[in-house]
Write a protein that binds this DNA or RNA. Structure first.
Length: 403
RNA sequence: CGGGCUGUAGCGCAGUUGGUAGCGCGCGUCGUUCGGGACGACGAGGUCGUGGGUUCGAGCCCCGCCAGCCCGACCA
């Protein structure tokens, strides 16, 4: 991609009122544009990152047997009444048609996938199953805030698993935990698995994947031994002895990037999702649900991986692998750059080439830091036919003959 | 939804006692520059969030509304 043709310009100045690093940097670097509170448009750079994350999530979901589907965002009121959440879920967006029919905009998809599962699951032979989607969710938050971290419309991966028994769910739940840990690791994040309440619709357990950062809006109490609890259910406070190992627990500000729930038979009961077991008995299907906020994850990565100059993308989620920057105004520099650009592209490497002859060197270098592509390749009169390679965030660079 | 702050050019902002709107960045043309957001010259760009009111006259004063941000509540 030639930067001269890229949709999205960088900005030297921050937007006036917003204070979160993820909003500031993603908007300034041309990844995203805010339409209104809690709602963003994604420009090519931002959309590439979201797709990087999505593809990685697809890999890990596939690895635990998840099959990708795509469900509607517009839901019938009736399904939400059946589960009681038409009235109980405050964040549910409700819309009215011309004929006064009412609908919900999906904040989550149990109300859609469980009735769908009912058409396909009737025997123990149909279990277990795991289906997921990556889709836009809508939640009527009273207050959207912190850039991508709490939006009213956002991108989310939601996986639902269906089991013949609580034990089978339990073992899948542990597999999902492992897959989630891998996803966040690949995103350059150390996610802490914190115990949390099961919420209003299950008496069972849930776990949250929490990333520690100053800008986080959640609070957990955690210990190096692996113990961690969400503030809402924690029986310990900062400094108290860890119930597992006895060392004092720490209080951490965190961003919740994923959560996993044991839903038990709640939704199966609501919609009559049953199966016949080996002995011919009819039983309710046990369901688990597993979410990752894809767009929030992008925000969380920026919160954790940035410096005073801009974003520092972890390799696997970066919009491009290389940022080729041509300095000066010599024809030879641009001729060499074009060759390098063509070669890298031919090799299947993703490269953003700053081919803007009218931009100053200083501006190009500042832009490269702001955008935060992991490897910067500079070609200038000083590099004399070679290429200067530098990792974003590193101090030293090295001259190489080819990449 | 309660409290606070803010809405003036694409972005960031200034605008005095009410007298008919300006600066920086960005943008366009030309020239000079080129390793950390260069310089000069010329130029384009405005229903001052919106509706009402007060006044000879409102960006400025008064009332309503809308929007954004921050704190809180909310966030199965």
């Amino acid at each position: 991609m030639r930067q001269s043709e890229l949709f999205g310009k960088t900005s030297k100045t921050s937007e006036g009122s917003a204070t979160s690093a993820n909003h500031d940097l993603l908007v300034r670097a041309g990844f995203a544009d805010q339409l209104m509170a809690g709602v963003y448009s994604y420009l090519p750079l931002g959309w590439r990152v979201l797709n990087r994350i999505s593809d990685m999530v697809r890999e890990e979901m596939g690895a635990i047997g998840g099959q990708e589907i795509f469900l509607p965002a517009l839901h019938p009121k009736e399904n939400w009444q059946k589960t009681g959440r038409w009235d109980s879920m405050d964040v549910l967006f409700k819309v009215k048609s011309r004929t006064e029919s009412e609908y919900a905009l999906g904040p989550t998809h149990e109300e859609v996938i469980v009735p769908l599962a009912k058409k396909h699951i009737s025997s123990y032979r149909d279990l277990p199953r795991a289906w997921y989607q990556i889709q836009t969710k809508f939640r009527d938050e009273l207050r959207a805030k912190a850039g991508l971290l709490r939006g009213r419309e956002f991108l989310m991966k939601d996986l639902y698993s269906f089991h013949a028994s609580a034990e089978d769910l339990k073992s899948y739940y542990e597999k999902a935990k492992g897959a989630y840990t891998k996803v966040f690791k690949r995103c350059g994040l150390d996610a802490i698995i914190a115990e949390a309440s099961g919420g209003s619709f299950t008496k069972e357990y849930s776990h949250e994947f929490q990333v520690a950062t100053e800008n986080g809006e959640d609070v957990i109490f955690a210990c190096a031994c692996g113990f961690a609890q969400n503030k809402e259910i924690a029986k310990v406070r900062a400094g108290d002895a860890c119930p597992h190992c006895g060392t004092p627990v720490k209080e951490l500000k965190t961003i919740e990037v994923g959560n996993i729930f044991d839903l038990g038979a709640k939704f199966s009961k609501d919609f009559g999702l049953k199966f016949t077991d080996e002995s011919g008995k009819s039983k309710e299907v046990i369901i688990g649900c597993y979410g990752i906020g894809i767009s929030r994850l992008m925000g969380a990565i920026v919160e954790v991986h940035h410096d005073e100059h801009g974003i520092i993308w972890p390799q696997e989620v970066a919009p491009f692998a290389y940022h080729l920057v041509s300095l000066g105004d010599d024809d030879e520099v641009y001729e060499q750059s074009e060759k390098v650009y063509e070669q890298l592209s031919k090799d299947g490497k993703e490269v953003l080439w700053d081919d803007r002859r009218e931009a100053s060197n200083a501006e190009k270098l500042a832009d490269a830091d702001l955008i935060g592509i992991p490897t910067r390749l500079v070609i200038s009169p000083k590099t004399k036919g070679k290429i200067e390679a530098k990792k974003r965030g590193a101090k030293e660079s090295k001259l190489v003959s080819n990449i």
